[in-house]
């Protein structure tokens, strides 16, 4: 990704916060979740540790949030407001399985 100006970063930050605030204002935010640093480590069977995030695919996970909704459709609608698509990202919506 090309280097972004501070202004662009700021504008993106606002979009994220407005998206998250909108979900919270509907009382559907369970946890704002976290953003992740881009680097990472991967552990595989046999105690094989490799550097870097999981790279079988180009897209790595940049962050996650936990929301509540009555249906997948509703969850998907909330996810549509996520600003990640602008930079070519995608959102995976998964239902939580209480442990």
């Amino acid at each position: 990704m090309a280097a972004r100006t501070e202004e662009e970063i700021h504008a993106t930050g606002k979009k994220w916060m407005d998206w998250m605030g909108g979900i919270a204002a509907q009382n559907k935010l369970v946890s704002k979740g976290n953003r992740l640093f881009p680097n990472g480590k991967v552990v595989k069977p046999g105690n094989v540790v490799t550097d870097g995030p999981y790279t079988e695919i180009k897209e790595t996970i940049g962050g996650y949030s936990i929301i509540k909704s009555d249906s997948y459709e509703e969850a998907v609608d909330l996810a549509k407001g996520c600003p990640i698509y602008v930079i070519g990202g995608n959102v995976e919506v998964r239902e939580i399985n209480e442990m």
């Binding site: 998907v76 996520c82 995608n90 959102v91 995976e92 919506v93 239902e95 399985n97 442990m99």
Partner: peptide
């Protein structure tokens, strides 16, 4: 923990 089904949204 996550259930096994899901939806993916792209641009």
């Amino acid at each position: 923990a996550l259930s096994t089904e899901g939806r993916v949204l792209q641009s």
